[in-house]
């Protein structure tokens, strides 16, 4: 098999890159979901200024290319005297960009929550924070698992862009392998299939989570 013959001597190096991709994605997904939930709660707030600030953040980071955002952070942060590694910069940029998209999904989940439920919680004497974290958010997250899944899959694909700021994650590692073997077609074709299977696996996992969270919703 000609593809395997090209890849085989470099498999260890590629696996290192893969590990870096997985690490970046896991941290960025956690960051994006946290930031997204926070932003969504701000966007559903009654205060005009809080709402406006959160909306502006979501609007800007969804309408500017990720590559431009990444360069802004990568070249801009040292200017402010903040010296962090390329990997850290990349993960922060992914979290911020991902958070903007996640907040959209969670916000539309929050909008599906019946106002009667919130009224009932208020009457029961729950505090506003309790109502949001214990009542609204669980319902909203259950509804938004599937759309959030496609956002997270996009985030995984976005992680390949970190290779442009010297992070040797899977794509960066593959670039080096392609340059040393002079077999770019084989290397990138394998890479494409790898990413496609990774995201397909992720979408199966999301379907499983969706079924698990909504297991009481069937039948009625």
């Amino acid at each position: 098999m000609r593809f395997w013959r090209v890849i085989e001597p470099h498999i260890g190096f590629l696996l290192q890159g893969f590990a870096l991709t997985v690490a970046a994605c896991l941290i960025a997904i956690a960051g994006a979901v946290l930031l997204g939930a926070l932003t969504a709660s701000m966007r559903s707030s009654g205060n005009r200024w809080v709402r406006g600030a959160a909306n502006a953040y979501g609007d800007v980071f969804r309408n500017v290319p990720f590559l431009v955002q990444l360069f802004f952070f990568f070249y801009g942060l040292p200017e402010l005297g903040i010296y962090i590694g390329a990997f850290e910069t990349g993960v922060i940029a992914m979290s911020i960009a991902g958070g903007a998209f996640v907040s959209d999904v969670i916000l539309s989940g929050i909008m599906t929550v019946d106002t009667g439920v919130i009224d009932a919680a208020k009457v029961s004497g729950l505090s506003r924070v309790k109502i949001f974290t214990r009542i609204v958010l669980p319902i909203a997250l259950r509804v938004s698992v599937r759309p959030m899944g496609s956002v997270l899959i996009n985030l995984v694909l976005t992680s390949s862009i970190l290779s442009t700021i010297t992070v040797n994650e899977l794509t960066g590692a593959a670039k080096i392998v392609a340059a040393t073997t002079f077999k770019p077609f084989e290397v990138y074709a394998v890479l494409l299939v790898l990413y496609a299977s990774l995201t397909t696996l992720l979408s199966f996992a999301i379907s499983a989570v969706h079924r698990r969270l909504n297991r009481f919703m069937t039948g009625g």
Partner: peptide, 16 residues
């Protein structure tokens, strides 16, 4: 749809 555009670009520009 399920692979990064950057990898597709590399495949077409360097690979093909």
């Amino acid at each position: 749809k399920n692979s990064p555009v950057l990898v597709q670009l590399f495949l077409v520009f360097f690979g093909i």
